[in-house]
Design a protein around this nucleic acid. Structure first.
Lengths: 215, 215
DNA sequence: ATTTTTGAACTGACCAGTCAGTTCAAAAAC
DNA sequence: GTTTTTGAACTGACTGGTCAGTTCAAAAAT
């Protein structure tokens, strides 16, 4: 029965399973509370209580309330960009056009917001504030999102599929904004609509079929 | 005696010139601070100081910090809708198409945001939050903005100028979002661009000339 | 003469962050 | 294989400070 070999390396792994689980619970608790109330109005006691954890645990796992928030931002935006990138790659694999890729990304964005509405809310609410502690984190994180869209636009222009007239950074920002706001509005004020309804409306705008032509 | 007196109406006039001026100073101070820091992180003392007014004056003019904020929201959105409506009417007078009217409204939106960036920031940051004291005020105020756009879209469809496919409420929300986010992004991250650049990019999207056709 | 503003003092609630102490599963010693 | 030790993870009462909102007498403005 050859002993399993004594030396257990993972002892030093600072991200033990237990710790990871605790952090995840804290993210989960913080994201909803901050989305609803804003950062300043949300207390660390509330976060701890909602996570089912003592206040001290928050400070054992994070340096401060602000740091918890910043890591939450990085974590969430990581999920979003991965999802957008995957959609773009997927469309590319299938040999679709860049407009099709954008369309897929819009859908991926909507799916994400539908699954994590609180995170999106919080992101939009904080993004354009100035002079806040986490400003630089936000800028980095915003750039990650926009860059994914910009790349697709750039490829589309190079391939001659998109108009050379378009201003890539501005168009990317506008597209992201369109999806964010339409989705938040859907979640907040038009819950009865299906994801396909929303996707359809945005797709129409993207394809420029708002004006003109009826079939 | 017993002078029943000619009922002095203006006694009840709570909006004397002086008071209006004080309130305006308080709005002005509050809007910047709250846009930068958020509602909860902004103290009444700060607002009073920035407005160059004593703290007691704040409470003489407003019932509470929350009420000051709600009135600020109503005041600001009043300006915005008036501006959008004016743009729409203006385009209509000139006998332009509805797409032209939308284009004018986009420009009016950009001009507004350019003039009152702090208000826009604050509006976007608060709009989709839930469970806050001023939630109902926000819903009313949002509806006013969206309604202006919806009306133009509806007229456009009726006139056969816009596709009957479009989903009016969703499209209106998406258009408003597109402008809001593109403009905030412009203000925050792409200051060097001119208003015309931004307007051009959005106009291209509106006219559906992103994909295809180069001249 | 009445409205509006001032400013400073006060209250009571609330909150971020700290720290001395507890828990417990795994490693080491026996 | 039983006992002891270790230390990462967690706990929650406590502290020092902050803030919204109140009060009010006196001053200024109209």
């Amino acid at each position: 029965m050859t002993a399993p070999g004594p030396v257990r390396i993972d002892v030093m792994d600072s991200s033990s399973t237990r710790r990871r689980a605790t952090r995840a619970k804290l993210y989960e608790a913080a994201v909803t509370l901050i989305a609803e109330q804003g950062f300043s109005a949300t207390t660390v006691d509330e976060i701890a209580e909602r996570a089912g954890v003592a206040k001290g645990t928050v400070y054992y796992n994070f340096k401060s309330k602000t740091e918890l928030f910043e890591e939450l931002l990085r974590f969430g935006v990581g999920l979003l960009t991965a999802s957008l990138q995957e959609a773009a790659d997927h469309a590319a694999e299938r040999g679709g056009t860049k407009v099709e890729a954008l369309d897929e990304m819009i859908r991926a964005g909507l799916v994400f917001i539908n699954r994590y509405p609180a995170f999106t809310q919080l992101y939009v609410a904080e993004l354009w504030r100035t002079n806040r502690a986490w400003q630089s984190t936000l800028m980095v994180v915003r750039q990650q999102v926009v860059a994914v869209v910009e790349t697709v636009l750039r490829d589309g222009v190079e391939a001659g599929e998109l108009s050379e007239e378009i201003d890539i950074p501005l168009t990317a920002a506008a597209l992201v904004g369109m999806v964010l706001v339409a989705a938040l509005d859907w979640q907040a004020f038009q819950r009865e609509r299906s994801l396909d309804d929303v996707h359809g409306a945005l797709s129409l705008l993207l394809h420029g079929r708002v004006s003109g032509r009826r079939d």
